[in-house]
C-alpha cells in the first residue's frame, strides 16, 4: 500500500473525527450519532496514523499486504 493512500485516509478520517466532535458539542449532530460515527472512524484513524509513523523508518512505502 502506497504511503500517500495511508496519508489520505489518516487526514480524511482525522478531519471527520474533529468535525464530528465539534458538531456533537454544538448540537448540530445528535450526540449518539456522533458517538457511533466516532466509534467507526477511530480505528481507521489510529491504524493509519500508526502506519504513517512506522513508514518513516522504511523508505516511505508501507509493506502492508506485500509480504
Amino acid at each position: 500500500m502506497k504511503r500517500h493512500y495511508v496519508q489520505l485516509i489518516a487526514i480524511i478520517s482525522g478531519i471527520l473525527l474533529i468535525v464530528l466532535s465539534v458538531a456533537g458539542h454544538q448540537d448540530i449532530v445528535q450526540v449518539p450519532v456522533a458517538a457511533v460515527l466516532s466509534i467507526v472512524l477511530a480505528p481507521v484513524f489510529l491504524i493509519s496514523v500508526g502506519l504513517l509513523f512506522s513508514a518513516e523508518v522504511i523508505d516511505g512505502d508501507i509493506p502492508f499486504m506485500g509480504y
Partner: peptide, 29 residues
C-alpha cells in the same frame, strides 16, 4: 508506533489486522 511493521507470512491477514481495529472499536464504544 515508530517501529517497522508488517504482517507475518504465516498469518491470516484479515484477522491479524481486523482484531486490532476491533479492539480499538470495542473500547471506544
Amino acid at each position: 508506533l515508530g517501529k517497522e511493521s508488517w504482517i507475518p507470512k504465516t498469518a491470516s491477514q484479515g484477522v491479524y489486522v481486523a482484531v486490532v481495529g476491533i479492539s480499538i472499536a470495542i473500547w471506544t464504544a
